[in-house]
Amino acid sequence: MAAVRAAWAWFRAFRRTRPFWGGLWCIVAGAWIIRSMFFSFVLAVTGGWSFSAGYILGGSLILFGVVTWCAPHYRGLLGLMAVLLSLAAFVAANLGGYLLGSVLGIVGGSMMWAWGEKAPKPARSTGGRRRRRTTPEVADAAV
């Protein structure tokens, strides 16, 4: 039980220190696009663009999602690239996995790009663990 709780605490910290959800949607989008154009590997390698587009575009989306998890520093570039690749997938890869993959990729990429430090929540206390609570209080006092 303690192990589960520790793992959950680790996962929560992992989630909060990187664009987890944006990356996740990108990975799902990529997997879905590949699924919609699923060919044997030989065919994808020998058959040219119309067979390999799903692997290339969907694979890139998966890669971008994984890289933003590992290196959140690159989220801005990768997020925009993911949006553009999702658009390319609409034209090249079975209408972007029947539209769904493209939409998910655009949502995920936007979330990745926009991830960052937010203004701390005002008054609501979460057990006093939050560090940056001092700033708004000072601001309140000034008013």
């Binding site: 605490a9 990429g109 936007s110 926009a114 929540k121």
Partner: peptide, 27 residues
């Protein structure tokens, strides 16, 4: 150190609407 870093509040900011709207419009 990751847990310490997680104390800062981070997440998807509202500016996500910009590429989201742009992307969906292009689609």
């Amino acid at each position: 150190s990751m847990k310490e870093e997680a104390a800062t509040r981070r997440g998807t900011r509202t500016r996500a609407v910009v590429p989201l709207a742009g992307g969906l419009c292009s689609l």
